[in-house]
Amino acid sequence: MFKKFSAEEVSAQNQVKASVQRKIRQSIADEYPGLEPVLDDLLPKKSPLIVAKCQNHLNLVLVNNVPLFFNIRDGPYMPTLRLLHQYPNIMKKLQVDRGAIKFVLSGANIMCPGLTSPGGSLDEEVGAETPVAIMAEGKQHALAIGFTKMSAKDIKAINKGIGVDNMHYLNDGLWKMERLE
């Protein structure tokens, strides 16, 4: 999704109203309970929250010009990889095998066999349509953020086709955009 993404695609960035800010905070807190203790540090109540609207109904949540979260249409907020690396345990994790890494890093969606093979691992509780962190065999840090197409059980049972949509991966456009001026 962010394969080709640059500051030019940001069509408008606005400081959002306090009520919208509350809503964003609330939905992030609901989605990632593990993030709650540090949420005040991440999104300080005092400093203005900026939402950048981009093409394809994409929104970026910025604090101090640093993109922290993104969402599509009214979908769930997902952290950027830089943020996820800092707090790795806030999301459910799926692990792909080593062979899949290079495809994921060039933007491919995650196929079921890569998750079910010996190198991969699945969190059984993951349902369909939830944001997940994609880890890799033998690596400590997440390499992508995905949005599941089917639940973990289905992935195991069907074991064919796209299991997780690749939303944001290392070295894509959003990753390269450390700060948005």
Binding site: P37, H85, N89, I101, K139, Q140, H141, L143, N171, W175
Partner: peptide, 20 residues
Amino acid sequence: EKPQPVRVLYCSICSLPAEY
């Protein structure tokens, strides 16, 4: 109990985490 942010070593050349 505040979780401390993990410091990740990023490569200064390609900006990826060093292991990638």
